[in-house]
């Protein structure tokens, strides 16, 4: 629970930023959805779909997986609306649901998030700098990061979580998160470096 709390208390960023004008309508919709209004549920989906999908896409690095994860996030939201206490923005809660679901799915698939494991993704992720430089932007380079490094980078440098919050969310040590984050940045630097600049690290 602490991870969710930490996320709910996180500064409003990413899909948490529903916008001040949307704040009250969202609270009202949550209330209606809790009482069983499917229309309110759909409205909540429409308001948050692009934010949720954006996060899922970055977390998974895969369109199909991101679609499935986004669906799961909203199905889970509907089933667990009672547990949403409204202390943080709904977007932050959805974001924590997405991270939890992603980790659960990976565990179930016996692949695990393995944030602390060097599962060979490292080798695959040594993106050839030239090709990347030619064809891929940052988004694509993120998608090609090894799983653990991608989670750390997206949650820290894109979504703005702190090391400690990510560690709680993923159930790993803070040091592991930092190591993966540093690795992600090095890999991205290498992937995005101009052809002449070869990053050894």
């Amino acid at each position: 629970m602490s991870g969710i709390d930490a996320l709910a208390a996180a500064p409003e960023a990413g899909i948490g930023g529903a916008g001040a004008e949307a704040e009250d309508p969202v609270a009202g919709l949550v209330d209606q959805a809790r009482r069983g209004s499917e229309a309110a549920f759909e409205r909540l989906y429409r308001l948050h779909a692009s934010q949720a999908y954006g996060l899922c896409l970055r977390l998974t690095g895969d369109r199909t997986e991101a679609e499935a994860l986004t669906q799961e996030v909203f199905v889970r939201m509907w089933r667990k609306l009672d547990t949403y206490e409204g202390r943080g923005p709904l977007g932050a809660w959805l974001r924590s649901l997405a991270v939890h679901l992603l980790i659960d799915n990976r565990r179930r698939a016996a692949r695990g998030p393995r944030l602390d494991a060097d599962d060979g993704a490292m080798a695959r992720a040594s993106i050839p700098p030239r090709r990347v430089e030619e064809t891929l932007d940052l988004e694509r380079a993120i998608a090609r990061l090894p799983r653990g490094a991608r989670l750390a980078f997206v949650l820290h440098d894109v979504e703005g979580y702190r090391h400690q919050e990510i560690a709680e969310q993923l159930g790993v040590a803070t040091g592991t998160v930092k190591a993966q984050l540093h690795r992600a940045r090095r890999l991205l630097r290498a992937a995005l470096a101009p052809p002449g600049e070869v990053s050894a690290r």
């Binding site: 779909a49 986004t70 909203f74």
Partner: peptide
């Protein structure tokens, strides 16, 4: 790199409407 990461668009429209499947599963 960090500036670029922070500036990435947070919203990405799903390539298709995911609602029908969500409604089917949730409702």
């Amino acid at each position: 790199l960090l500036r670029a990461a922070a500036a990435l668009p947070r919203r990405v429209e799903p390539p298709r409407d995911l609602w029908p499947e969500i409604a089917a599963r949730a409702l």
